[in-house]
């Protein structure tokens, strides 16, 4: 059972009339993993999530969580999944403890268990001190914590969090990151959407990038980087700026005349992209040194999630432009 994916989505499609919100999505996620779900607004993330939590039905395809069909076994799905939407859903004049008590009772958690569980989740999320506060009087960050408490109350296997770090101050964001990593340690499977990509890259081990209802990239962060960037960006910093033209010419000779070489005289830097492996890059460096070029630094520019996301969305935009011009 443990080698089976907890979240399994196969060829999921959702259409609203002529509009395709989700187009043949297939992803799977193992227990204890944290999936970062990325995409511009309207990419289909929320539609996927709504199908997973049983709030929407797919037009075709199948989605299951821990073996339960998200469309047919909605009652079991509700127990297996904890969903924190991007809107909080507060009630006026209710204290935090009463708010959690209501949702605990709504999930039919017996009273003695509920008492213990409310304390546990508040402790885990660092929300114990606000138990007597009125929910509507809480700041955004505090509400996010209470929302997370509510999501975890019935001890779900999978937690789906829509923009959990949205609007949080740096301290609260660090705290939220700590909580999410702790949850993964506890064996929970997490699906997290966020527009704050550096934040997401710090907690996610798996990433799915969507645009226009289609899955553009899926896998671990390293896999995605590799698949998106066949070329690597190398940066060379020289000791003397006057050697920059010589170095540029060497690169064009060795790497290829089509290679895009960017020179920054002020920084005494040259950037170029290449598909060379480590051995050939080492030979390139040796060649430069052999010609008397004094190299201060020679390194690969790290590609982050933001680059990967931009790469996908730019490719998407280019495709759309091509389709428009062809049409």
């Amino acid at each position: 059972m443990s080698d089976q994916p907890v979240v399994d989505v196969q060829n999921l499609t959702k259409r609203y009339g002529d509009f395709t919100a989700l187009d043949d999505l297939t992803i799977s996620l193992m227990r204890g993993r944290i999936l970062g779900f990325i995409g511009p607004n309207g990419a289909g993330k929320t539609t996927t999530i709504r199908i997973l939590v049983g709030l929407a039905r797919p037009t075709s395809g199948k989605a299951s969580i821990a073996g339960c069909d998200c469309t047919r076994d909605t009652t079991r799905i509700k127990r297996l999944v904890g969903y924190m939407p991007d809107t909080f859903g507060s009630y006026d004049n209710m204290r935090v403890r009463e708010y959690l008590d209501f949702f605990g009772a709504a999930y039919r958690i017996p009273r003695p268990v509920r008492t213990r569980r409310i304390e546990e989740v508040m402790e885990l999320c660092g929300a114990t001190w606000m138990k007597d506060r009125y929910v509507e009087a809480l700041s955004h960050g505090m509400k996010q914590r209470v929302g997370l408490c509510r999501t975890m109350l019935h001890d779900p296997e999978v937690l789906i969090l829509d923009e959990p770090a949205n609007g949080l101050d740096p301290t609260a964001r660090i705290e939220m990151r700590r909580i999410l990593l702790r949850l993964a340690e506890l064996g929970k499977t997490l699906i997290v959407t966020s527009h704050i990509l550096p934040e997401l890259s710090r907690i996610c081990d798996t990433v799915a990038i969507m645009t226009q209802g289609k899955l553009r990239a899926f896998g671990t962060l390293d896999q995605i980087m590799r698949s998106l960037r066949q070329q690597r960006m190398i940066e060379v910093q020289l000791v003397r700026a006057e050697q920059l033209p010589v170095m540029a010419q060497l690169l064009r000779d060795q790497v290829g005349s089509e290679t895009e070489v960017t020179i920054s005289e002020q920084e005494r830097e040259i950037r170029f992209s290449t598909a060379f492996d480590e051995t050939r890059l080492a030979a390139l460096l040796a060649g430069a040194v052999g010609r008397g070029i004094e190299v201060a630094q020679y390194r690969e520019v790290p590609v982050d999630l933001e680059d990967a996301f931009l790469s996908v969305t730019r490719a998407d935009e280019a495709r759309a432009r091509e389709e428009a011009s062809a049409g």
Binding site: D92, M94, E98, F102, A105, A106, P110, R111, D132
Partner: peptide
């Protein structure tokens, strides 16, 4: 006063409405 937890025989939505309504 600090309220009791919702009991097993009552409708939680009813209690929620009472508590959230002034």
């Amino acid at each position: 006063r600090r309220s009791e937890l919702i009991g097993p025989l009552v409708n939680p939505v009813m209690i929620k409405e009472f508590r959230s309504r002034r």
